[in-house]
């Protein structure tokens, strides 16, 4: 439905990729670890290797959690924009299909948060 208005109505898109100075927005969530109250948002270069994303950005974001060091990365399950996904660690975000405002979610089987509470 278009906006009811007294004339032509076109909104200015406030978050198109061109506004992020060569970066794209990427969202990331560690599933069932609500110690981190919400998913995170990052402006990232599209050619950032997925390995750097996992090896540098994620530890800086999540290592305060006691489950972090227990993660078995071979068993981690990924979702990209709601679909099951197997990342190629050597490829870039872009070549992995991670686009502007894509949402990555990872589940760490066996790790259920603080006292099993999903925290």
């Amino acid at each position: 439905m278009s906006v009811l208005s007294i004339g032509e109505y076109e909104g200015t898109v406030m978050d198109n990729v061109e506004r992020f100075h060569g970066n794209q927005l990427v969202y990331i969530n560690w599933e069932k670890h609500l110690f981190f109250c919400a998913p995170h948002a990052f402006p990232l270069p599209p050619d950032m290797p997925f390995a750097a994303f996992v090896g540098e950005l994620l530890p800086a974001t999540y290592s305060a959690h006691p489950d972090w060091e227990k993660i078995d990365w071979s068993s981690v399950e990924w979702l990209l924009d709601g679909e099951a996904f197997t990342p190629d660690m050597d490829a870039s975000l872009k070549d992995n299909g991670v686009g502007h405002k894509s949402c990555l979610r990872f589940t760490t089987p066996g790790l259920t948060g603080i006292g099993g509470s999903g925290s």
Binding site: P39, G115, S119
Partner: peptide, 23 residues
């Protein structure tokens, strides 16, 4: 459990502040 864990971190001088911006 979440709050008690944060309290414990605080006692250790590591009050948790989320350093990355939220979605």
């Amino acid at each position: 459990p979440r709050f008690l864990h944060w309290r414990e971190m605080e006692k250790q001088g590591k009050r948790f502040y989320n350093g990355s911006l939220p979605m």
